[in-house]
Design a protein around this nucleic acid. Structure first.
Lengths: 190, 190
DNA sequence: CTGAATTTTCAGAAATTTCTGAAATTACGG
DNA sequence: CCGTAATTTCAGAAATTTCTGAAAATTCAG
């Protein structure tokens, strides 16, 4: 590996984390390298930088393209393929969320729905289905929230993040006002 | 494997997904089995159900305990260890979020902070640091949001989820009112 | 077209992870 | 304490994943 020390540390870390993130070491390293690179890199520059085989780089780039984390970029007058990691960090976040949902959540949601359609054949299965229903319900709440929130433009998304739990304070205030109104009118419980 | 068909399908699916979720097949299967089981199970019942070795079950249960996804439960008059998957689905969500953050995010955050402390030794490193700063900033925004939201009780959390992007509509409304006020007073831009 | 540059494919090697069975350790009723 | 039931450990087997080098395929300038 032939990189400036700071960049090398970052690349090695991404490589080590790769397996926890559902990608492999090489793929993590290639992404890290492209992420901190100011200009597009071609495969041979990646081979050079990381000290891995050309074919491995080819496969890694293909996987990163499948994840939409890296895009092909041509340089005029050069036959080689160059690659960049898109630089808008919020867009990267969206891409990661989308791809991880696709790989880690959607298949389970579809299995849960399928299993919930079946007629239970025993008391055990009936109980299991009730548990699957709880899981399905939660995942649906989460994915509905996600589908809604992902449509926000970045500014609003950032606002929503910085707001955090404060949102519910507004709601609490509203609830108090509503319940106060009821109390005065004398309907419903305290 | 010796399980009712519906439960077997669920267990096999969790096993297959395991690798995408950062656990292995057996661990996924053990969890799935406990999740749909109405009473605690002991190791031998899991061996029986899944058709894997006793030692593998032992290691799988240990990993699930490390994840706080499974807890040890004793049955009076029985020397064996029994296990359950806690049944509150919202608590499971919290546990998963916490453990995944610990494994998948915190180490990177700590590496980023460390690398950002270093004095860049070249223009390349200077640029790389600027990119690491962007990444660090985003992760901090996300983890701050998470640290805030995770303290909410379940009811409020569910409310916040069902609200989704509507939150920002309230804010937009507020902004419009504020800017209207400014307009009337004649300070600031439209 | 031709042929050199470039990329991709893929069989098998290398590395890593998972799993097992046997042995060691621990826990506990009597 | 003793003896047995239960659990854990761990070396190495099995399975899986990752990586490489050689060959095939593709691309494109001339």
């Amino acid at each position: 590996m032939n990189l400036p020390p700071l960049i090398q540390s970052f690349v090695l870390h991404f490589g080590e984390m790769g397996s926890r993130w559902g990608i492999n070491r090489t793929v993590g390293q290639i992404y890290a390298l492209l992420y901190v690179s100011p200009e597009p890199l071609c495969a041979d520059q990646i081979v050079e930088g990381l000290g891995i085989s050309r074919s491995n780089v080819s496969m890694g780039l293909r996987e990163l393209q499948a994840w939409n984390l890296v895009i092909l970029r041509h340089i005029p007058g050069d036959r080689r393929d160059f690659f960049i990691a898109p630089d808008d960090i919020w867009q990267i976040l969206r891409t990661l969320a989308e791809e991880r949902k696709k790989r880690e959540v959607d298949p389970t949601l579809s299995v849960l729905r399928e299993l919930l359609m079946q007629q239970p054949g025993s008391e055990e299965e009936r109980y299991a289905q009730s548990r699957l229903m709880e899981m399905n319900g939660l995942i649906e709440q989460l994915t509905n929230w996600y589908d809604d929130v992902k449509r926000l433009d970045t500014e609003r998304l950032a606002t929503l993040l910085s707001l955090g739990s404060k949102v519910t304070r507004l709601l609490d205030a509203k609830d108090r006002i509503v319940s106060l109104g009821r109390k005065r009118r004398g309907d419903g419980q305290p």
